[in-house]
Design a protein around this nucleic acid. Structure first.
Lengths: 197, 197
DNA sequence: AGTATTTCTTGACTTATGACAAGGCAGCTC
DNA sequence: GAGCTGCCTTGTCATAAGTCAAGAAATACT
């Protein structure tokens, strides 16, 4: 694969600010593989082990788990620039209970667990970056979790609308609802109430 | 400090299964400092930066955050053998919004961020261990978060009772309640309903 | 185009949980 | 032992959100 600059434009952007030497950056960039996917594609399926994670360049993804009653619960959305990963399965090398599905056509950059491990253990800046990503996700999850306890459904909706309007606009109402932890019926009413003051 | 075996009994136990060379284990063990604390002590306070994390040998701790209405929300409990850490503050080096308080007299083993960093970047087994801990906590938080959406308050209580009875037995009802995301009034009723079938 | 399917809205009713308030009970201090 | 104070329980009532069911609107399928 050619290493001409344009190929790396997206990766340069993602790793902007990470103190790689240029040799290190080349090693890192080479380890990622560009993959296009189309709407509806499953990037990860329940029961599989997550053998890679990805950096999302274009498109939007939804992660969901199926609960004991067979209900589909949205656990997260992924927007361009974000890291697409099922942390537990990827790092613990065991089957996942989650699914990740493409909501649109899109493009991501994939890296296998083995290649990730090699980079993680040999490049200090890469491992600081990786740990930082994990910590950031952890923090976000904790806030979401707290919000679930502290805030009403309406407040959670308004917060989502304020911080990530793309999700509210592009995702199906029922998926947004299950992400917020409420039924689609409730979200429909909340949305109406919020719209007409 | 003497490195005689008995000093390290607890640390040996915690790091059991981690593939350290014996020289590595000595370096790791030396980096931790034994600290005793008494009931009511604050191990971390809102506004501070978490400059260390600890391995809990004896005692029980509670972490909580104060929400905008001034309500005290329990975010977690720590039992012996567990890692006591406020992930976001420790790794991002910024002030925390959480408090960690001792519920009893106890003992923990503390390590500073700087010493942690040195070990993390120089000992592969230590960083695998550290990453594994973080991933485990992440997974637990995700499950808790999902449970908040999927399960009723009663189910959450019963699950806590089944998996961590020490918490239900030792912690004040109001703290367990706020950990479960309900009021103390509700938990009191749930507990009664569960007890009398 | 025309039918089928999914997605969203709305209404009527139920239910879990919260809010407030009063009382009981233990452990303290004086 | 009287009086605090903090913790838990209980009663009454209020409310957010769920359930079920029927339509409307949008999408996809042939």
């Amino acid at each position: 694969m050619s290493l001409a600059e344009p190929q790396h434009a997206f990766l340069s952007h993602v790793f902007h600010g990470v103190p790689f030497t240029s040799a290190e950056f080349e090693r890192v960039a080479e380890a990622y593989e560009r993959v296009a996917f189309s709407k509806g594609a499953m990037l990860l399926q329940e029961g599989q082990c997550a053998n890679d994670y990805a950096l999302l360049e274009r498109g939007m993804l939804r992660a969901f788990a199926v609960d004991p009653e067979g209900q589909d619960r949205t656990t997260g959305f992924f927007l361009p620039g974000q890291i697409v990963i099922e942390v537990a399965s990827f790092f613990m090398r065991r089957p996942t209970r989650e699914n990740i599905q493409a909501m649109d056509d899109g493009v991501c950059w994939r890296i296998s667990f083995d290649r990730f491990q090699t980079l993680f253990h040999s490049i200090e800046a890469y491992r600081e970056w990786g740990r930082g990503c994990l910590v950031e996700q952890f923090f976000a999850l904790k806030q979401r979790s707290l919000s679930m306890i502290t805030d009403s459904a309406t407040e959670r909706y308004q917060q989502l609308l304020a911080t990530q309007p793309e999700i509210v606009q592009q995702a199906a109402l029922k998926h947004v609802a299950s992400y917020l932890g409420i039924t689609d019926t409730s979200l429909s009413r909340i949305r109406k109430a919020v719209a007409t003051p």
